[in-house]
Design a protein around this nucleic acid. Structure first.
Lengths: 329, 329
DNA sequence: TTGTACGCGTTATCAT
DNA sequence: ATGATAACGCGTACAA
């Protein structure tokens, strides 16, 4: 790899002058500029980001922490973050935390050791010391705390809509799947749903689940129909669980949506390809990713960011696992 | 952030001695070691990786390039890579290439600028100059070329199995979906399938597709049944397409697998949750990711790696979109 | 066993 | 308009 000194020698100038043309700082004669530029090309010189980072005490790297990229909600988020960062010449150091606080700590530490200028984190512990003590901007994605910079969808509203539609389309023995207690968005959805259910004086059942994993989703679906075999409406904690519930319902010979209505949350890409296609509350995952990256960049540029907390709207996405309004038995 | 000199001052020694205890290199008296260790703790000192990287001309970072993390096959792969790297104290700089050679170039360049010690790439252009000229080890994941280090599944064999099972279970008017011409694994599967079909003297139809995206999968599914309404067996290029085909078949009132058998490729997590559950050729994605990371680490540690090309086995995963052997009409 | 001095590649400051 | 030089934080010869 050629260094700035090699270029300087090649062009018959000093390293300082080369630095000036690279960074477009200070004066430099057109002729020398041209000489330097051609030297750069000849030697295929590109600046060593590590040396830059050392001197400036900041890099073009940002840290990005996700619970588990294997959960289909997150790739969309990640893609949004990555695209936006890429467009702004930032690179991403990426890690999965498995919601494990120790892993988070380790990652954050190495992020700092690598001079990242900011981090985007989707964590259950946004109020942990690691984050509070960080001297670089942090944007919390999909989860939030106090009034620290965050981007997340309106889960509470989503839960309300889900319950509302369930009732409007005729379900009367509704089961709500609560989702992991440690995951804030899951609880928001749940709370929104039961708020509406309660305010309508409806009776309902609750199934508690402890993860969003594919492997366990089937288990809860089975449990659900064993405990509440005559439930006629299910508000699932996300699309994975909803998919498992749909699968189990069909396996039991139930007609969806005539016997049971099902609604999910997230709108992951496969939801529309299910049969019947899954009705769900959509989160704009990709846009959330982009928005979080955008917010972080603003924070970096230190503009007085007016909007540090961005709550994205959630939309009822009507497909085939719920009946038409007014068309229920 | 405390520096090594701060620690030295605090412990009343020189920076060199501190460096010795950190890296466990050279002699250091137990007493001074203890003093230094406590100084490190008090100051919460962690070494600056950037300075290290600059001095040693190598980091603990590796570059990881994927076509699109949004394609559900890749998160598993990514998770495998990340887990293995994490266990070995490497961090990952991640990018999506969209199969776009220019984007790949840009990423590889910035990887190099950041002193990554190696890269793992899933690319359609493993023979491109950028990779040939790289002076650090590269492992090609899911795709391969010449005899450069790679980890990939046996797509050709997978295609053969798929065709074989289709025939064994009674399909006679088979349609093969070819998948994007630019994607090597897609062509391997296709080739494997038609090899078997041809050797059995079977007639078959081909549908060409140009991407693996969710949005377009439905389009090809429709096209398929319009052009070949009486096909009774479909070998899809991957599980996404297979899911779309299944969706369309059911929409048209066909019985799967009695009227049409369908087989996918990959075994993405949702495949088993479809109804009927998708029969498919499984690639061990997570293990492939791990294996590629392991291979890269070996390459990093010593040049003489015996097994530079790892072909992983593919397995027929029987579920519900194909009939039982011998039970066909 | 420990310290000194230098270099990794870059940028900013201060001369010229 | 350009160059010399110091500094960013660390690790390694080499000296002591």
């Amino acid at each position: 790899m050629a260094t700035i000194r090699d270029v300087a020698k090649h062009a018959g100038v000093s390293a300082a002058t080369v630095s000036r043309v690279i960074n477009d700082t200070g004066y430099v004669h057109d002729d020398t500029r041209r000489k330097i530029e051609s030297a750069i090309k000849e030697l295929h010189y590109t600046p060593n980001e590590v040396a830059r980072s050392l001197y400036k005490r900041k890099s073009r790297l940002i840290g990005f922490l996700l619970p588990d990229i294997t959960n289909p909600f997150f790739p969309e988020l990640a893609r949004g973050v990555e695209d936006m960062m890429q467009e702004n010449d930032f690179r991403i150091i990426f890690g999965n935390s498995d919601e494990n606080i120790q892993k988070e700590k380790d990652y954050i530490q190495t992020f700092v050791q690598n001079n990242v200028v900011g981090v985007i984190a989707s964590t259950n512990h946004p109020d942990a010391d690691i984050y509070r003590k960080l001297k670089i901007p942090v944007v919390f994605l999909d989860r939030t705390v106090d009034n620290r910079p965050s981007v997340y969808a309106d889960g509470h509203e989503g839960g309300k809509i889900a319950a509302h539609e369930m009732i409007a389309r005729g379900s009367r023995r509704i089961t709500v799947m609560q989702g992991p207690a440690s995951i804030r968005p899951a609880q928001d959805r749940y709370q929104g749903a039961i708020d509406v259910l309660n305010s309508h004086g409806m009776d309902y059942n609750v199934i508690r689940t402890t993860s969003f994993s594919f492997t366990e989703a089937g288990k809860w679906a089975k449990e659900l129909f064993e405990r509440y075999p005559d439930t006629d409406g299910i508000i699932a904690s996300n699309d994975i669980v909803a998919t498992a519930v749909l699968h189990e319902a069909l396996r039991l010979g139930k007609n969806v949506p005539d016997d049971v209505q099902i609604i999910g949350f997230d709108d992951i890409p496969l939801s529309s390809l299910l049969t019947p296609a899954l009705t769900t509350i959509r989160q704009p995952a990709y846009d959330m990713g982009r928005a979080s990256a955008d917010l972080l960049i603003q924070l970096l540029e230190n503009e007085n960011v007016d909007q540090k907390i961005i709550q994205m709207p959630v939309t009822f996405t009507e497909r085939e696992t719920m009946r038409k309004v007014g068309h229920h038995g």
